[in-house]
Amino acid sequence: MDITRSEVVAVRAAAEVVNVRHIVRRAAVDLAFSLVEQTKIVTAASELARNMVDYGGGGDLTVELLSDGIRKGVRLIFEDQGPGIPDIQQALRDGFTTGKGLGLGLGGAKRLSNEFQIDSAPGRGTRITIVRWKGSA
């Protein structure tokens, strides 16, 4: 699998979530994602970027374009140095929130992605990786 393009954006404030949406949209458009596919990955990115600002104190987003044979995809890596997530299973459950949100962020982002991986432990920050492949259900 090749990474054909990669860029890193700092996400520190809630207002920058809009910027994240635009960058991810551009990546999805460059890979000729269908409108629905674009909307799904952009929405997932919006949820995770906001989570990172609200609960992780901000962090970095890496946007990568992937090429695996004829498969093309977008990989998003959200990394923060925040307090971490003590119970990942619980955090993934719909409706669970420690803050002001609806608690759909993590579970929702997972449903909107084809691959979802979360690495986190208390005090060690959080790293969430999602991938969406073009043309996948």
Binding site: V36, T39, D94, L102, L104, G107, G108, R111
Partner: peptide, 14 residues
């Protein structure tokens, strides 16, 4: 509401 937005909201669980 755009169809793509509606489909995404349903998937999101909203």
């Amino acid at each position: 509401m755009q169809p793509s937005v509606a489909i995404t909201l349903v998937e999101l669980g909203l």
